[in-house]
Simulated scan of single mutants.
Amino acid sequence: MKYRALKNTELQISEIAFGCMSMDLSRKINDELIHAAIDGGINYFDTADLYDQGKNEEALGQALKGKRSEVIVATKVGNQLRADGSGWDWNPSKDYILKAVDQSLKRLQTDYIDIYQLHGGTIEDPISEVIEAFEQLKAEGKIRGYGISSIRPNVIREYVANSNIASVMMQYSLLDRRPEEEMLDLLESNKVGVMTRGGLAKGLLAGKSPEAFLNYKSKEIELLVNEMKKLTDDKTKLSHVALQWILSHSAVTSAVVGIRTKEQLDQALAYTESTAMERDQLDDLGKVLPPAQYQVHR
């Protein structure tokens, strides 16, 4: 496994990260997967207080007992669960963030969170309050760094300009290249790490039958996948081609991959053995379909 520096921090992040959102909460299966991931070199685990109403954090914390110092834990805040269990409400207030972090720490069974992320955000949020909360938590040692999980350019620009964010988690893939228009260059020039999600585009870039995605029609996706198939071999799966393409961008720190099964973990770990593609091959893949641009929140 290769590692990349998360600039503005002292952290070294594995190129492939473990997305916990869909993981099985069965104690035995969950522990085995996470331990195998660590043994395979994955050191970054991404969860959120919203996932499974906090049980996702609890499961991760349980699995990391005795291994906490070996890994980097990222979680998220901002979606406040309703007391009656009927759903959640967006709450990016300073008071809520300062209270929510303690609950996440308890569920994760840890004294600190490596990267604490705002789970979304709008331009109408009290952004200065959010930043104050994160900076206070950092000063108190409850978090080591902070970031946002957002695809909204206007929101990202505000945090880049007014805070010390270490990372932005955003959707980015061969089928969602909207961040290329402006965001990736902005983040790289400000030494903010990009943690990608959705790199396999709901499985469409890993062998799932083509179907419409964003502004692309199924036939266009089939065309792209056929070009990707030309780059596969005994060691390289479709998913590896998709991930290599993402990680070839210098702004990207790590690709967060959702993992629920041993097969998915094995395929993610096998990425490290995949045949390296040439720069011109990667560039050619990016020319198959025209990149989309953000239409809102600009």
Rank of each mutant, 00 (worst) to 15 (best):
R82H: 12
S189I: 00
D102L: 02
L174M: 15
E129H: 13
E158K: 14
E278I: 01
E32A: 15
A166K: 02
T236G: 11
W90C: 06
G85P: 03
N215S: 13
G66E: 05
G198K: 11
G120M: 06
L64K: 05
L231R: 09
E227S: 09
L118K: 06
W90P: 00
E158Y: 15
G141Q: 11
P290L: 13
A255I: 03
K106Y: 02
E58C: 02
E140V: 03
D111F: 03
I165C: 08
Y96I: 02
D111Q: 13
Q136V: 11
A48C: 05
T122A: 10
K99V: 06
G286S: 13
E158F: 13
L224C: 05
N190H: 15
E220I: 06
Y116L: 10
E222T: 09
T236Y: 07
N43T: 15
F134S: 00
P291V: 09
D114N: 12
D24V: 10
I148R: 05
L285E: 09
E57S: 08
K142E: 07
A36T: 14
L200N: 07
V71I: 14
L64H: 02
H119P: 03
V288Y: 03
I131C: 04
L204C: 04
Q267F: 01
R107V: 04
D234M: 06
L231M: 12
E278R: 15
Y159P: 01
R279Y: 06
G85C: 09
D102P: 01
A206L: 08
K219V: 12
V256F: 02
G207K: 10
L214Q: 15
G66D: 04
K7M: 08
V77Y: 04
R177D: 10
E57A: 03
R152M: 05
I246L: 06
P290A: 15
D31I: 06
L214E: 15
K235V: 02
G41C: 07
L187W: 06
L269Q: 10
Q267Y: 07
E222F: 04
L6W: 09
A255T: 06
L105F: 08
E181Q: 14
Y44H: 15
L214Y: 14
V225T: 13
Y96G: 01
Y294S: 12
M169F: 00
Q103M: 09
